[in-house]
């Protein structure tokens, strides 16, 4: 559309493009560095010689992880919480968003509940009462402690509710005339038309569950119940090696640096796998949620 472009304009175009590409690539450099370390020889790593390309390429770290029961146990806990937590989030979000998307005429208590949920969303009580509550329910050391406290993601409810409200009323009324009750209406009209929004909120909750570590840290007493992020947090950040005893032999081939880098990378893989979907749907989601005008 811009046919006549001056040379200087083109140069600026290239400069901007180049600059942004550089910025984009440097955003990823730390991740590349981690990958390179995980694939490098331990001597090269402790000598600080590894940059963006592995030095002394080997797969020892990954081989070690494959045989590391604790890692996979934690991985399993994470998968379980994603499935249970994500599923519960989905059902509850839909069930809560639908009545809230009704008019006050159809559902007189709608505004009251709306305010209650919004208040619940912005109310963030301190960690001590929160812990006392959950331990009071005897949920400590059960998977439910990771699933139930966040089972109703109110932000997602609001996104979905707004989406429901934008569905044309005609669809609604047509179904009504056919004698559909609210359950049928939700099931056969609203859900099928809301696939993109549902995909968005589901991805939101999956990523949230996968990434959270703190609830695992304080609500799980038994380290066998740690989800993967908590396991990694204890290992890499809090520096509590789970491998004493075998450590001496292990150190002959690996250092905790290379091994930790490999664990960080393996923990990233699920996110990298869903990243294409994330990118598509999250962007839509943030538009739905943040800039509703």
């Amino acid at each position: 559309m811009f046919s006549s472009r001056s040379t200087s304009d083109r140069i600026i175009d290239w400069l901007i493009t180049g600059f942004l590409l550089l910025a984009g690539i440097s955003t990823l450099l730390p991740l590349v560095n981690t990958l390179a370390i995980s694939l490098s020889d331990k001597a090269a790593v402790s000598g600080g010689m590894v940059g963006l390309w592995p030095v002394g390429f080997n797969l020892n770290s990954y081989g070690y992880i494959l045989r590391d029961d604790k890692f996979w146990q934690a991985f399993g806990v994470s998968v379980l919480r994603v499935v249970l937590g994500g599923g519960l989030n989905f059902v509850l979000t839909v069930l809560t968003a639908f009545p809230l998307s009704r008019t006050v005429k159809a559902f007189p208590a709608r505004n009251f509940f709306m305010w209650l949920f919004v208040f619940g969303m912005i109310l963030n009580v301190g960690i001590v009462p929160w812990y006392l509550t959950i331990s009071g329910y005897k949920l400590i050391d059960t998977i439910w402690a990771l699933v139930l406290p966040g089972a109703i993601p109110i932000f997602n409810v609001i996104i979905l509710m707004n989406f429901f409200r934008n569905i044309p009323k005609e669809l609604d009324e047509a179904a009504r005339i056919d004698g559909a009750n609210p359950w049928q209406l939700l099931w056969s009209v609203y859900l099928p038309t809301s696939i993109p929004a549902l995909a968005t909120i589901t991805l939101f909750s999956i990523v949230g569950h996968w990434n959270s570590f703190f609830d695992g840290l304080i609500l799980m007493n038994n380290p066998d119940n740690y989800p993967l992020q908590t396991y990694i947090q204890q290992l890499v950040i809090a520096d509590r090696p789970a491998l004493h005893g075998g450590q001496a032999q292990m150190l002959a081939q690996l250092s905790s640096n290379t091994l930790n880098a490999a664990k960080l990378f393996v923990a990233m893989i699920p996110i990298l796998l869903v990243y294409p979907f994330l990118q598509r749907y999250f962007i839509r989601g943030i538009m739905l949620g943040a800039v509703k005008e």
């Binding site: 812990y131 331990s135 007493n221």
Partner: peptide
């Protein structure tokens, strides 16, 4: 009731005390 890494023992015990259990 639980077996944890040595360095977490005190933290975990404090949490148990907090929960009254």
């Amino acid at each position: 009731a639980w077996v944890v890494p040595s360095d977490s023992y005190s933290d975990k015990l404090n949490l148990s005390i907090a929960s009254g259990d």
